[in-house]
Simulated scan of single mutants.
Amino acid sequence: MINTSTPDLAAVRSEPTTVKDTRGYRAFRVANVIILLSVCAVTLYPFVNLVAKAFSSEGFIAAGEVNLWPRGFNIDTFRYVMGDQMFWLNYRNTVLYTVVGTFISMVLTSTFAYAISKPHLKGRTFFIWVAVFTMFFSGGLIPNYILVANVLGMRNTMWAIVVPTAISVFNLLVMKSFFENFPADLEEAAAIDGLTTYGIFLRVVLPLSKAVLATMTLFYAVGMWNSWFSAFLYLDQRELFPVTVYLRNMIAAAGPAVDPSQDAVQIGANIQSVTMLLTVLPIICFYPFIQRYFVSGIMLGSVKG
């Protein structure tokens, strides 16, 4: 006779669902915690040391006595750097270059990726190979400089910073893979409702792609914020420099003294630490707001199926 009685739900719910707590599993968890804490310590130490040096006096830094905690606390170098009008002008330039460059990069990358993600696009394979080709081959430094500075006439302009590196092929391929996995039923339903291709992309696809868009925005913004070589190459007016070039010049010029007229003269390591700290703080403050999209954005755009 078949037993048709339903099982006791309370008994089912009370059954343990965790991994059996064996001696080997406990050892694995301990080792896992130790390894992860070690990785965190190794990763955080340079930044903590940077902060300590930024607030330390020259004697302790020169003696190599500053590790995780400031020695001889002082903020004279902060006053010196933050009192420099050129620092704030270059900082404003960096914000402008980052915002404009990231916007241009996201517009070009998302539209290009969406287009080549469609199998029915004529010449799709050709466009993909053109993009991939640039990952392995480039014209070289001198032809690029001639193109940007002479042919396009972008020298000493913001466009020399934000246009030549507008599309990252890696980010393009990640977004292409993400759009290929996008549910086709949603696009077909939007087309039936009367939306054009642009309407589907702007009103359906992009609002449902926040994870990959946030991840790519982070990549582009951090890359643009940290970029200095393009500005160093194409700009020769100090008023147009980003803060990274200001930092580079400060590190190159920092010696035993910054300004003899200052009451407290700071050595080069202190100048470097203060400027680097002020440079990276905005990115550190910005990252937590989109960190939750980071892993999901990468995984959604990297797995096919």
Score class of each variant (00 low, 15 high):
182 F>A: 02
184 A>F: 13
137 F>L: 05
179 F>T: 02
50 L>I: 04
84 D>L: 02
117 S>K: 05
91 Y>K: 13
81 V>S: 04
131 A>E: 05
82 M>V: 09
54 A>F: 04
98 T>C: 12
117 S>W: 08
65 E>T: 14
165 T>P: 06
158 M>F: 09
127 F>E: 10
69 W>A: 13
70 P>K: 07
106 M>K: 09
168 S>G: 15
56 S>N: 00
176 K>G: 05
82 M>K: 12
76 D>A: 15
142 I>P: 06
84 D>H: 08
127 F>V: 02
101 G>I: 06
64 G>C: 04
48 V>S: 03
105 S>P: 03
66 V>C: 00
52 A>D: 12
126 F>I: 13
102 T>W: 10
171 N>S: 02
158 M>K: 05
168 S>E: 00
159 W>Q: 12
54 A>C: 09
77 T>F: 00
64 G>K: 08
78 F>W: 06
80 Y>G: 00
173 L>M: 12
58 E>K: 14
128 I>D: 04
127 F>L: 06
116 I>W: 01
52 A>T: 08
58 E>A: 15
50 L>S: 13
100 V>A: 10
174 V>Q: 09
74 N>D: 14
63 A>C: 05
184 A>W: 14
63 A>H: 03
81 V>E: 11
68 L>K: 14
80 Y>S: 04
71 R>K: 14
93 N>A: 11
127 F>M: 01
47 F>I: 11
101 G>E: 03
124 R>M: 04
180 E>K: 14
110 S>C: 06
98 T>H: 10
127 F>S: 07
80 Y>I: 02
58 E>M: 11
56 S>C: 07
98 T>G: 06
77 T>R: 06
61 I>N: 06
91 Y>S: 05
116 I>A: 09
167 I>M: 09
100 V>R: 03
179 F>N: 01
63 A>G: 10
155 R>H: 01
156 N>H: 02
55 F>G: 13
129 W>V: 13
173 L>E: 01
54 A>L: 01
94 T>C: 04
137 F>Y: 00
130 V>C: 13
47 F>C: 09
142 I>R: 09
105 S>Y: 03
184 A>Q: 15
113 A>N: 10
155 R>T: 14
76 D>Y: 12
170 F>K: 01
168 S>I: 10
64 G>R: 00
49 N>S: 13
48 V>W: 10
85 Q>P: 11
69 W>S: 12
110 S>H: 07
167 I>T: 14
81 V>A: 00
162 V>R: 01
120 H>W: 14
81 V>P: 08
57 S>E: 09
100 V>N: 11
86 M>S: 10
166 A>L: 10
105 S>Q: 10
116 I>Y: 08
65 E>L: 12
106 M>L: 15
59 G>V: 05
112 F>A: 00
67 N>H: 14
142 I>S: 05
99 V>D: 00
96 L>K: 15
184 A>C: 04
86 M>C: 09
163 V>C: 05
169 V>G: 07
78 F>V: 03
154 M>F: 07
144 N>C: 13
110 S>F: 10
61 I>C: 08
160 A>N: 10
178 F>T: 00
171 N>A: 06
65 E>P: 08
161 I>Y: 08
112 F>Q: 07
50 L>D: 03
111 T>V: 09
133 F>A: 03
106 M>F: 09
75 I>M: 15
69 W>I: 15
119 P>S: 10
